[in-house]
Amino acid sequence: MYKHLRFKDDVVEGKSTAGEFTVKLLDLNEPTVVSYRQSVTQLIEAMLAQLHRLDNVYARLSALAEKGGEGRDKLLSTIKQIEIDIAKAKRALEQLTAQPF
């Protein structure tokens, strides 16, 4: 289908006669469908930003935990929770994008 269709933002455009026919037949640019596509795109962007933040916090806390000292056990507990949150975010992104993270 990549030969016949392309995205322009959240709208599907036909690149060929077959593509134009498909867009019309399946009503790929019906307002509700475009709105849904926009929502999914925004969700993916938000999930990527969250994953980036979690990765940064994970790195900073891991560096602190390596230094040891008082509160290390609490840091390690927090790090484990962040690892779980990172895994959840990656699974969600994989489901939304059908790509590995």
Rank of each mutant, 00 (worst) to 15 (best):
R72H: 02
R60N: 09
Q99D: 15
Q42I: 09
Q38R: 15
E13A: 02
S77R: 04
L51Q: 10
I86R: 11
R60S: 08
G69Q: 01
R6S: 13
T41E: 06
V12I: 15
I86F: 01
V33K: 14
K80C: 02
E83L: 08
K74W: 03
S35P: 02
L26D: 11
D10W: 06
M47S: 10
Y36Q: 14
V57R: 14
T17S: 15
A92L: 10
R91A: 13
H52C: 05
V57E: 14
D10I: 07
V12H: 04
K8S: 12
H52G: 13
P31K: 12
E94K: 12
E20P: 12
M1R: 06
I79L: 05
L61Q: 09
R6F: 03
L61I: 03
Y36S: 07
V40S: 07
L96E: 04
G68W: 01
S77M: 04
G14Y: 06
A89P: 04
F21G: 00
E30A: 15
T41Q: 03
P100R: 15
E83W: 02
I82H: 02
A98Y: 10
F101V: 02
T22W: 06
Y36D: 08
R60I: 07
A89W: 04
D73R: 00
N29C: 10
R60P: 00
N29A: 09
V33C: 05
E13Q: 08
H52L: 12
K15Q: 07
L43G: 11
L64K: 07
F7E: 08
M47K: 15
A59N: 09
R37W: 11
P31L: 10
L28S: 01
S16F: 02
A65V: 01
T97L: 02
G71V: 06
T97R: 09
A92F: 08
H52T: 14
R60V: 07
V33I: 06
A18M: 14
E13S: 00
M47W: 01
L54P: 05
E70A: 10
K74P: 00
Q81T: 10
T97C: 05
N56T: 04
L25Y: 12
D73W: 00
K80Q: 13
A87H: 11
A98R: 13
A46T: 11
